[in-house]
Nucleic acid binder design. Structure first.
Length: 814
DNA sequence: ATTTCATGACTTTTT
DNA sequence: GTCATGAAAT
C-alpha cells in the first residue's frame, strides 16, 4: 500500500491544515512517470477510471444496474486519499441506508486500510445530520442530549395534539397527519413555508397549524424527528453563515450514493454544503428511482447539470452482472419510459438463457410451480441463497412461504418488520430510555402499563394533568401523584412500585455494566415474564429477540451511547449466510443480485399496481416500470416471470389480466413457457373438488387471454369474446395479430380435475410418531392439534393459524 | 381495566 | 381473507 506512506504523518486527522499542493504534485508526478498503477485502479474500465480520476468540480456518474457503481465510489475515495488531496476527515460520503454505509466502509477499509478510522463523515444523510446538529444544538434551539423520535412516538404525539384540538381521529387519522408532515419535511418546508392551500387540506384548514404545534411540542420535549435532522440542519446553515463556512472549509470532497433517491430536503442540504469546494460527486441511476412515493425526486438527478454548473456527466454502461438476454429484456422494457437521461447497457458476456414468462392458473399454482422449479434447481446443484423471489407487494409472500413450509424448503424473508421495530424491542428500549432519562415522556407512556399492571387510561390521564399543571416530566408527575391521596390505593401502590424501580435501576446503572442492567430491568419489570407466559407462536421468538437485543448492546460503551446508535440505526444484521431461498419485495431487492430470480405476479392491477396508476398516473406507471427494470436486472443468469389468471384480492377471487409490462418485453429475448405441473398439480390446497369445479365455471373468458394488447383492452376484448375458450389446449392457446400468446396454466387442462389428493396419497411412508389429537408446536404457526396424518405429512388445526398441512419434521410435541 | 367484538383498510419503506 | 385498531361489553 504505497498510498498510506504518502500521507503526511504530522497533523492530527481532524486538523484542517491543507497542504495538498506538494503531495498532489508528487502523486500525479508519480502517476505520469509510469509508476506502477495504484491497486485501487486495477481492473477498472475506462469510464470507471475516468469517474474515479475526475476529482475537481461537480460530477454525475450515471451508473446503470450492475456497472460497478460502488466500486467507483470506493476507488474514488482511495484515489483522493492516495493522491493526498485531502485528509480522511475532509471527505463527506453520504448514503441512504445504514447497510450501504456499512458496506462502503468495509470496502474502503479493504482499499485504504486504517485510514478509514479517520473518516467520521461517512454515513447516512441522517446520521451525519445528527452529528452536525449535536455540535451546534444551541443554535437551533435544542438542549444537548436531545432525543430522536421514531415513528411510533411521532404518532402518539400527534394523537395527543389531535385530541387537544378536538379533531375526530376517525376522520383525520394521526397516521395521515404524520405522513403529511413528513411529506412537507421531505420537501424542505418548515411550518411557515407550507403553502396555505396545502396546509388547509388536513382537518378543515388546521393542517398548517397542527404542523406548527407539533414542532413546538418537539422543542418542548427537546426532541427531533427524522425529518428535522435534515431540515434543522438546513436552517442552521442558512441562519449561521459562519457555521456553514466552517463546513465548507472542512469538506473538500463530497460523494453521494444513490442520488436518484434524494428528496428535496436532502438536495438542499447537500447543495448548501457543496457550495464550498464544489467537488461533489453524485452516483445514481435514474432508471432505478423507485422511491418517489416517499419523497425522492427523480428530478434531482435529471437536473444535476443545471443545478451544479460546469458539471461533468459520465455514464457507466458496461454491465458485469447479467447475461445478454436478461440485459436486453430489461433495457427494452425501460426504454418505454420517457424523461430518462438515457443509457444503453451492454455486456460482453454470453446471451445466456432467455427471460421466461409463464402463466399459472392462480396464485396458488404459481407458488406451487415456482416451488417445484426451485426444487429442480436445488437438485441440479444450485445454491438456494442464489435464488430469489421478488414480489411487488408483501402479501404475495405468504403463499410462497406456505408452500415452502409444506415442502420443507428453507427460505428467508428479507424486509418485513425490522428488528428494532418489533414491539418487544421497542418496549424494552422504552424501559431503557426511561432509566436513561426520566424526562423521556413518550417512552414512559409506552411502558407504564406494559406488562399490564392496572395503570389504565384514566390513571395516565391523571398523570398527564399533574405534569401539565406543574410543568414536570411524566415520571416526576407520577411520583407526585403517588404522594397524594388522589389514586386508589391499589393503583397508587403499583405506580409507586414502578417509580421506585426506575430510581433503583438508575442507581444501579452507575455501578453495573449496561448489558447487565438491561437484563435486570427486563426481569424485574416483569416484561420477560409477560412473554414467558404467552402461549402464542411468536412468544418464543420475542424472548429470543430480547436476548439478541442485550447481546447487541455489548459493543457499546454505555447506555446513552447505545440508545443514540439505536435511534438512528433501526436495522440489525439478520444473520445472513445460511442456504435459503430469499423472498423479498422488489423494493428491498435494489442493490442485490442473484443467479436466479423469480418474478411472480405480473398482472395488471398488481404490477403495475392499480394505486400507483390511480394516484400518480403516468409518473406512477413509469415508476412501476422502473421497478420491473430493477427486478429483471437483479438476475445474473436466469429471470423467470410469472403471472396468474386468478388472484384473490381483498379476499375475493378476481380474474386478472397479464401485465402490460409483458407486452413491452422484446420477443427475441423472451421465452414463453407453459406452466409446468399441468394436470394433477393444479387445483387448490383445500383438496376439495367443489373448488375445482368452480374453476371451470369461472375460467372461460380468461384463461386463454392473449396479451398482445394493453391490459385493460385485453380485459375488454376477452370479455367480449364468448367463444374464446379455455379449451385452447396444450398447443398454447391462440394469438391475435400473430403476437405472443400466453396460456395460463389452466389452459392445457383438458381432462378431469385431479386434485392434489393424489399426491398426498402416494406419499406413504413409515408410520408416524404422531397421533391424531396430540398437541404440537410449529415454529411458524404456533400451537395446534393434529387432526390427520398422512405419511410424514400432518394436518394440524392450529390455535391461531387455522388448519394447515405441514411436514412432521417441522413440528414438535408439546 | 381488560376482554371481546366489529369495523375498515389492504403497495412499496428508510431514517 | 386477515390484520390492526377502536369502541362496547364485561
Amino acid at each position: 500500500m504505497p498510498q498510506s506512506r504518502r500521507h503526511p504523518a504530522g497533523p492530527a486527522p481532524d486538523s484542517p491544515a491543507p497542504r495538498p499542493g506538494g503531495i498532489a504534485a508528487r502523486a500525479s508526478a508519480a502517476l505520469a512517470s509510469g509508476a506502477p498503477e495504484a491497486s485501487y485502479l486495477a481492473g477498472l474500465n475506462p469510464e470507471q477510471r475516468e469517474a474515479v480520476e475526475t476529482l475537481e468540480g461537480p460530477l454525475l456518474v450515471l451508473a446503470g444496474a450492475g456497472t460497478g457503481k460502488t466500486r467507483v465510489l470506493t476507488a474514488r475515495v482511495a484515489h483522493i486519499l492516495a493522491s493526498g488531496r485531502a485528509f480522511p476527515s475532509q471527505i463527506l460520503v453520504v448514503t441512504f441506508t445504514n447497510k450501504a454505509a456499512r458496506e462502503m466502509k468495509e470496502r474502503i477499509h479493504a482499499m485504504v486500510g486504517d485510514q478509514i478510522e479517520g473518516m467520521p463523515w461517512l454515513g447516512t444523510f441522517h446520521s451525519i445530520g445528527v452529528r452536525i446538529l449535536r455540535r451546534h444544538h444551541e443554535l437551533v434551539g435544542l438542549k444537548s442530549g436531545f432525543t430522536i423520535l421514531d415513528t411510533d412516538d411521532q404518532i402518539r404525539l400527534l394523537k395527543q395534539l389531535l385530541a387537544a384540538e378536538n379533531i375526530d381521529e376517525k376522520r383525520w387519522p394521526a397516521r395521515l397527519l404524520a405522513s403529511t408532515i413528513d411529506g412537507w419535511k421531505n420537501r424542505g418546508l418548515s411550518p411557515k413555508d407550507v403553502p396555505a392551500g396545502e396546509g388547509a387540506v388536513f382537518a378543515n384548514g388546521k393542517g398548517g397549524m397542527l404542523y406548527a404545534a407539533y414542532q413546538a411540542r418537539l422543542k418542548a420535549l427537546n426532541a427531533v424527528d427524522f425529518g428535522d435532522l435534515l431540515l434543522e440542519g438546513i436552517r442552521l446553515f442558512r441562519e449561521n453563515p459562519d457555521v456553514l463556512a466552517e463546513y465548507h472549509k472542512r469538506f473538500k470532497y463530497l460523494l453521494v450514493d444513490e442520488y436518484q433517491d434524494t428528496n428535496v430536503a436532502q438536495y438542499l442540504w447537500l447543495r448548501l454544503l457543496a457550495q464550498g469546494s464544489k467537488n461533489v460527486c453524485c452516483v445514481g441511476d435514474d432508471d432505478q428511482s423507485i422511491y418517489g412515493w416517499r419523497g425522492a425526486e427523480v428530478d434531482n438527478i435529471l437536473r444535476f447539470e443545471s443545478d451544479f454548473p460546469g458539471a461533468k456527466v459520465i455514464r457507466l454502461e458496461r454491465n458485469y452482472r447479467s447475461t445478454g438476454h436478461i440485459l436486453s429484456s430489461a433495457s427494452h422494457l425501460i426504454a418505454h419510459n420517457e424523461g430518462r437521461l438515457g443509457k444503453t447497457l451492454f455486456s460482453e458476456g454470453e446471451d445466456g438463457e432467455q427471460v421466461s414468462v409463464t402463466g399459472a392458473w392462480d396464485s396458488g399454482e404459481e407458488a406451487r410451480a415456482v416451488g417445484e422449479e426451485i426444487e429442480q434447481l436445488q437438485r441440479a446443484g444450485h445454491k438456494l441463497s442464489e435464488i430469489a423471489i421478488l414480489v411487488r407487494a408483501s402479501f404475495q409472500m405468504r403463499e410462497f412461504e406456505d408452500r415452502f413450509v409444506t415442502l420443507g424448503m428453507p427460505y428467508r424473508v428479507i424486509g418485513g418488520p425490522r428488528f428494532y421495530e418489533r414491539a418487544e424491542i421497542r418496549d424494552a428500549l422504552a424501559y431503557l430510555r426511561c432509566v436513561n432519562s426520566p424526562a423521556d415522556d413518550l417512552a414512559f407512556e409506552r411502558i407504564v402499563n406494559v406488562p399490564k399492571r392496572g395503570i389504565g387510561d384514566a390513571t395516565v390521564k391523571q398523570i398527564h394533568d399533574v405534569a401539565r399543571a406543574a410543568g414536570l416530566p411524566l415520571q416526576e408527575a407520577a411520583r407526585v401523584l403517588t404522594q397524594s391521596e388522589e389514586l386508589k390505593p391499589k393503583v397508587r401502590g403499583t405506580l409507586r412500585g414502578l417509580i421506585e424501580a426506575f430510581d433503583r435501576w438508575r442507581e444501579q446503572a452507575r455501578a453495573l455494566p449496561h448489558t447487565e442492567l438491561a437484563e435486570i430491568v427486563l426481569d424485574e419489570s416483569g416484561y420477560t415474564e409477560m412473554w414467558q407466559k404467552d402461549r402464542s407462536a411468536e412468544a418464543a421468538g420475542r424472548l429470543e429477540n430480547l436476548k439478541e437485543l442485550v447481546r447487541s448492546m455489548e459493543p457499546f460503551e454505555n447506555l446513552p451511547g447505545f440508545l443514540e446508535h439505536i435511534s438512528l440505526v433501526m436495522d440489525a444484521d439478520n444473520g445472513a449466510g445460511e442456504d435459503a431461498v430469499q423472498v423479498m419485495t422488489l423494493h428491498s431487492a435494489k442493490g442485490l443480485e442473484f443467479d436466479t430470480v423469480f418474478l411472480p405476479g405480473w398482472e395488471e392491477g398488481l404490477f403495475p399496481h392499480q394505486r400507483a396508476l390511480d394516484e400518480q398516473g403516468k409518473a406512477g406507471l413509469e415508476e412501476e416500470r422502473r421497478l420491473a427494470y430493477v427486478g429483471i436486472t437483479r438476475a445474473r443468469a436466469s429471470a423467470r416471470i410469472w403471472f396468474a389468471s386468478n388472484r384473490r384480492i381483498h379476499g375475493m377471487w378476481n380474474s386478472t389480466v397479464p401485465s402490460r409490462f409483458l407486452d413491452e418485453l422484446p420477443d427475441a429475448h423472451v421465452r414463453v413457457e407453459e406452466s409446468r405441473g399441468g394436470a394433477g398439480w393444479g387445483g387448490s390446497s383445500y383438496g376439495g373438488n367443489s373448488y375445482g369445479q368452480s374453476r371451470f365455471d369461472r375460467a372461460e373468458p380468461f384463461a386463454a387471454s392473449s396479451y398482445s394488447t394493453p391490459g385493460w383492452q385485453r380485459a375488454q376484448a376477452s370479455r367480449a369474446r364468448p367463444g374464446g375458450g379455455f379449451s385452447g389446449g396444450s398447443s398454447g392457446g391462440f394469438s391475435e395479430r400473430g403476437g405472443k400468446s400466453y396460456d395460463a396454466g389452466g389452459g392445457r387442462r383438458g381432462g378431469p380435475t385431479v386434485i392434489e389428493g393424489t399426491l398426498i396419497a402416494s406419499s406413504t411412508g413409515a408410520p408416524s410418531a404422531f397421533k391424531p389429537g396430540e398437541r404440537v408446536f410449529h415454529i411458524k404457526f404456533g400451537y395446534g392439534e393434529i387432526t390427520g396424518i398422512d405419511g410424514n405429512k400432518l394436518t394440524v388445526l392450529f390455535d391461531k393459524a387455522g388448519e394447515k398441512r405441514v411436514l412432521e419434521t417441522f413440528v414438535e410435541k408439546t
